[in-house]
């Protein structure tokens, strides 16, 4: 592996880890200007790293503007899947990611969602890395092999 490829891999890893740690600590997914300032890189370098990470299905960019929409399990915009853990509020793009926030944090968490059909509020709770409050059923509308064909719909 040449030096350029190695440094690119390191930058991508640093960018990914910064995003995850910042989102975990604050509930807010950092965006390119903040990532660039934190890591001491040019914003163009961060933009290229985000494109590579998105191509590798590590995160999802918003169409057209280069901002991060989701760095699973964290979602950058408010959603109907809300997670509260250690007095921090998080958003997730789906119920899998909402539970994934509790799994990522390894902290007791409350998942507040709504029924996809009728909108009734529903709550799941995780404590000591176990699901201790549960209701309803989870439905995946898209077969596993096609999840990334249209990840927004998935």
């Amino acid at each position: 592996m040449d030096v350029t490829a190695t440094s690119t891999q390191k930058l991508d890893g640093d960018v990914r880890l910064y995003i995850m740690k910042e989102a975990a600590a604050t509930g807010r997914v950092p965006q390119p200007p903040e990532i660039a300032a934190a890591l001491g890189n040019a914003e163009s370098e961060i933009h290229d790293a985000l494109l590579r990470l998105a191509a590798g299905k590590v995160l999802i960019l918003a169409p057209n503007d280069g901002r991060i929409w989701a760095a699973a399990p964290f979602c950058a915009v408010p959603s109907s899947f809300r997670v509260e853990s250690n007095n921090v509020a998080y958003s997730a793009i789906c119920i899998w990611d909402a539970l994934g926030i509790a799994a990522t944090l390894h902290q007791d968490s409350s998942v507040n969602a709504i029924c996809g059909d009728c909108g009734a509020p529903m709550t799941l709770e995780v404590s000591d890395n176990a699901l201790v409050r549960s209701e309803g059923v989870i439905h995946f509308g898209v077969p596993a092999r096609s999840w990334w064909d249209n990840i927004g719909f998935t």
């Binding site: 399990p73 539970l99 799994a103 059923v137 989870i138």
Partner: peptide
């Protein structure tokens, strides 16, 4: 599509 219990969902997420 595919259905699972929240317990399965938690195990998958974990």
């Amino acid at each position: 599509g595919g259905m699972m219990t929240p317990e399965q969902g938690w195990r998958l997420a974990h």
